[in-house]
């Protein structure tokens, strides 16, 4: 905050050295939670990062990622056609939101669509929706990145570019409900797209929120596995999710299918996985160290699984499990729910 203040007062110049420090924050907003005053520190960091980028001082490691987002529509520098890959692994057809109408748009997100070991999140979500007889569609290779990582790293130009494309896609689809299994997409659509989604009268839900409501309304039974699990709150669905953080919804579902054993820091006080805010890309060692700390906390519960609802947390925490040679297993909640629905 003092850096921002000194910049504002003209006592400091933006610099690459400064960027090296400012980009080490995963913008998890735990500091804002601990502070007695209501300040959105993550938002201020994003604004400062935007200033750094405007001054040509952005982090080199983020440049290809944000460039790819604009040009290829995903930050992984991959052909967007690969977003169809997970769909080909399904044994049922799903609607193409570009050409077919559906009640619900499943916004898959780039991480789940393009990371082979995390494609299960997309696959399990689709299977759950199918089992619940939900009329849904996906955009497949036409799905455009939500722009989360551009926004978090201060590249507003890249964010605006993809946000406008998404606006057109959502408008064309005529959909009124968007669900996503990605915490980062959830926050971005729910909080950062709020104004224009309100224009289009579109409601955004995380998949767990949707499933929780659906199961409750339709009195659907799920299998209780009796295993001990602990739950990791993604910052995107917690502290950074605006007025409606998803703390209870995943826990309610987990209690139906497993024994939930809580970690020392949970909900608004939850430790971050360390991947967000461009840290995984910019400072992978730092991201891994933060994730290791979270895994140690999970291990202390004696749980068999650490469960989350964010593909990016999944990826970083999995890396930490591997690095620590830990016995704990990583799971996305959609995987457990899919199994529990039989």
């Amino acid at each position: 905050m003092q850096i921002i203040r000194s910049l504002w007062q003209g006592k400091l110049e933006l610099s690459k050295d400064m960027a090296e420090v400012i980009y080490q924050c995963p913008t998890c907003n735990a500091c804002a939670e601990a502070c007695a005053y209501e300040m959105d520190n993550a938002l201020m960091y994003e604004a400062l990062r935007a200033e750094l980028i405007d001054a040509g001082c952005g982090l080199e490691a983020h440049i290809p990622m944000n460039k790819a987002m604009v040009e290829l529509l995903n930050p992984y520098e991959r052909d967007n056609k690969q977003k169809n890959e997970w769909i080909s692994k399904l044994d049922f057809e799903i609607k193409d939101a570009y050409s077919e109408k559906a009640d619900v748009l499943f916004f898959v997100g780039c991480t789940a669509a393009l990371t082979p070991e995390i494609q299960t999140v997309a696959i399990n979500t689709a299977k759950i929706l199918k089992k619940l007889n939900v009329d849904f569609a996906v955009h497949g290779e036409k799905e455009v990145c939500c722009g989360s990582v551009a926004l978090r790293t201060g590249n507003w130009e890249a964010f605006n570019s993809v946000a406008l494309k998404n606006y057109e896609l959502f408008k064309k689809s005529g959909v009124k409900t968007i669900i996503t299994s990605c915490a980062g997409c959830y926050r971005t659509l729910k909080v950062n797209y709020a104004d224009f989604l309100e224009d289009l009268n579109i409601k955004v839900l995380h998949t767990v929120e949707f499933i929780r409501n659906f199961i409750e309304q339709n009195d659907i039974e799920m299998k209780q596995f009796g295993i001990n699990v602990t739950y990791h709150d993604p910052c995107h669905t917690g502290r950074n999710a605006g007025d409606t953080p998803l703390y209870e919804e995943p826990r309610e579902l987990l209690r139906k299918i497993a024994n939930l054993v809580e970690m020392k820091t949970i909900k608004e006080n939850s430790k971050c996985c360390g991947a967000g805010g461009g840290v995984k890309k910019g400072f992978p060692d730092l991201a891994l160290e933060i994730a290791k700390s979270r895994i140690r906390e999970a291990e202390a519960t004696g749980a068999e699984y650490i469960v989350s609802i964010c593909p990016f947390c999944y990826r970083n925490l999995s890396d930490a499990i591997k690095a620590l040679n830990s016995d704990i297993k990583m799971a996305d909640l959609t995987g457990l729910i899919n199994k529990a629905l039989g």
Partner: peptide, 19 residues
């Protein structure tokens, strides 16, 4: 001894004081 680090440490929670 970088300026932005000096700025970050230039005050406590005490805005009555100059940086």
């Amino acid at each position: 001894d970088k300026d932005f680090m000096k700025a970050a440490y230039s005050r406590n929670v005490d805005p009555a004081f100059p940086d």
